[in-house]
C-alpha cells in the first residue's frame, strides 16, 4: 500500500459560544475526532448535510482556523505543531479553492496581481518570471493575456472560479482543498469546472480533498468518499463500494435520496425522522441514534468505534461489531 500524502488523525475543532451566563462557557463541537488519509493523485470526497463540519474540516486542515486537537502528518511532520513562521513555506504545497469565487478575489486588484501574489508572498522568481508563470497558468485555465489586467467583477461566475483555480495552482501545490467549488455555479458550468479539475489533477499530479453536498458531483470526481454527520465521519469507502454497498444507516438514507433517472425503478426511500441535533448538545452514545431507524439500546449509551468491514471500508456503527476495529481508531 502506498504511503499517504496527508494523514489526518483525530482532528478536532470546537468553537466557543457566548452563553447567557457570564462564567459558563459553551462550545460547539464542529468537527469531532475525524481521521482519514489522502493518497497521492487521488480525490477524497467529503459529503454530508449543511452544518456537519465538512468545510470546517477542510479549513482546519490548512490551519485557516486553529485546530483544537489532532494531528495532520505531511512529509513526516505534524503540521499542527509547527509555528506559523515554519509552516508558511509548506503552505505552498497545500492550497484551497473556495465556494464563492467572487468573494475569494480582492475586488480592488487586477487578476494579474491576484495571481502573482502567491509568488510575492513566497518570495519566488523575478518580476518577469512571475508574470510569465501567471500568463502560462491563465492560458492553462482558458484565458488569454487580455484578461491579465481585468478586475474580478468583469468576469462571470464560471470564469472567476477558473481564476480561483489558477490562483491555487500557480505555486504548483501537491494538495488542494476544494470547498464546494461548483455549488455556486450553474449546472452547465459545473461540469466544465469539474472536468478542468480532473484534467489538472492528471497534469500536475494533484491530490484533492473535495467537499460537497451534491452526491452526483462528488461521485463523479472522487475516488473515495467519507460521509460526515454532526462532526463525525461515520463511513468511508471507495466511491463505487460506497454507492453499491452502503453500510451506515445514515449513508443508506442519504443515498436513497439520490434521484434515479428511470421512473420504473422501484426503490425504497429511507426518510429520516426529526432534526439534526444541535452540535451544542451532542447526543450521548452514537451521534446518529436519535434519528437512526435501526437504533439499538447500546447506541444510546456507547459511542461505536470505527469498524473496518473491508479493506478501505470503515464504518462507525454498532451494527458491524463483528468486524475488526480499525487501527486508526485504536491508535
Amino acid at each position: 500500500m502506498p504511503q499517504p500524502l496527508l494523514k489526518v488523525e483525530h482532528l478536532k475543532k470546537t468553537f466557543p459560544v457566548e452563553s447567557s451566563g457570564w462564567f459558563k462557557k459553551n462550545e460547539v463541537k464542529a468537527v469531532h475526532d475525524v481521521s482519514f488519509d489522502i493518497y497521492e493523485g487521488e480525490t477524497f470526497g467529503i459529503v454530508g448535510e449543511s452544518g456537519c463540519g465538512k468545510s470546517t474540516t477542510g479549513r482546519t486542515l490548512l490551519r485557516l482556523t486553529e485546530p483544537s486537537g489532532g494531528k495532520v502528518i505531511y512529509q513526516d511532520q505534524d503540521i499542527f505543531s509547527l509555528k506559523e513562521k515554519n509552516f508558511r513555506p509548506i503552505r505552498e504545497d497545500l492550497q484551497m479553492i473556495f465556494q464563492d469565487p467572487l468573494a475569494s478575489l480582492d475586488p480592488k486588484k487586477r487578476i494579474g496581481y491576484s495571481l502573482e501574489e502567491p509568488f510575492i508572498i513566497q518570495k519566488k522568481g523575478t518580476k518577469k518570471e512571475r508574470k510569465e508563470m501567471v500568463l502560462k497558468m491563465l492560458e492553462r485555465v482558458g484565458f488569454s493575456e487580455e484578461h491579465y489586467h481585468r478586475f474580478p467583477h468583469e468576469f462571470s461566475g464560471g470564469q472567476r472560479q477558473r481564476i480561483g483555480i489558477a490562483r491555487a495552482l500557480v505555486l504548483n501545490p501537491k494538495f488542494i482543498v476544494c470547498d464546494e467549488p461548483v455549488s455556486a455555479l450553474d449546472v452547465s458550468i459545473q461540469s466544465q469546472i469539474l472536468n478542468l479539475l480532473k484534467e489538472l489533477q492528471q497534469d500536475f499530479g494533484l491530490s484533492y480533498l473535495f467537499i460537497g453536498h451534491d452526491l452526483s458531483v462528488v461521485r463523479y470526481i472522487a475516488n473515495r468518499i467519507g460521509v460526515m454527520y454532526l462532526g463525525e465521519m461515520v463511513e468511508q469507502a471507495p466511491t463505487e463500494e460506497l454507492f453499491e454497498n452502503p453500510l451506515h444507516p445514515y449513508t443508506k438514507s442519504l443515498l436513497s435520496a439520490v434521484p434515479v433517472p428511470n421512473p420504473k425503478v422501484k426503490r425504497e426511500r429511507i426518510v429520516l425522522k426529526g432534526e439534526v441535533p444541535s452540535p451544542l448538545d451532542m447526543p450521548k452514545g452514537c451521534v446518529f441514534h436519535t434519528r437512526c431507524p435501526l437504533a439499538m439500546d447500546i447506541c444510546k449509551e456507547i459511542k461505536p468505534p470505527t469498524y473496518k468491514v473491508k479493506e478501505n471500508h470503515r464504518v462507525q456503527c454498532h451494527l458491524y461489531e463483528h468486524s475488526e476495529v480499525s487501527e486508526a481508531d485504536g491508535a
Binding site: 479549513r59 468573494a103 502567491p118 508572498i121 513566497q122
Partner: peptide
C-alpha cells in the same frame, strides 16, 4: 470576513500584507 482574506491566509500572507495591500 471576506473569503479573499482567507485565500491570502492560505497562501501564507503576513498580517501586514493583508492589512496594507488588501
Amino acid at each position: 470576513e471576506q473569503t479573499f482574506v482567507e485565500a491570502l491566509n492560505a497562501q501564507g500572507a503576513s498580517k501586514w500584507r493583508v492589512l496594507v495591500i488588501h
